[in-house]
């Protein structure tokens, strides 16, 4: 299945991209995909990672579905 990944703030800088698409197997969780991404971009610290799928905040054990849009962010600090 195809997943679109969007990067923001610290993660946009670390990866050097705003978004990308990845092809993953159908039983992939966010945790699995995070491992792949962190390894690909050599990111060690993911303690403060905040995630959303299709613009709703989620935890990392959620399963992904074909066409999902995963966003990798840090905690919001607007206002």
């Amino acid at each position: 299945m195809k997943i679109t990944i969007k990067y923001f703030a610290f993660f946009k800088e670390k990866t050097g991209v705003t978004h990308e698409q990845m092809e993953v197997s159908s039983d992939t969780t966010i945790d699995d995909l995070l491992e792949i991404i962190m390894k690909k971009y050599n990111i060690e610290n993911k303690e403060n990672v905040v995630l959303s799928v299709n613009q709703e905040y989620v935890k990392s054990d959620v399963k992904l579905h074909d066409g999902d849009e995963l966003a990798i962010m840090i905690p919001p600090s607007g206002g």
């Binding site: 923001f8 703030a9 610290f10 993660f11 670390k14 610290n45 993911k46 303690e47 403060n48 990672v49 905040v50 959303s52 905040y57 966003a71 962010m73 840090i74 905690p75 919001p76 600090s77 607007g78 206002g79």
Partner: peptide, 27 residues
């Protein structure tokens, strides 16, 4: 409204201060 913006709206501050540059909320 302000408190919920701070907690929920995905906007991120990068601060350029005299002692360095860092993202609020870090990573």
């Amino acid at each position: 409204i302000l408190e919920r913006i701070k907690e929920e709206v995905p906007i991120f501050k990068k601060e350029y201060a005299e002692d360095g540059i860092f993202w609020h909320g870090g990573a």
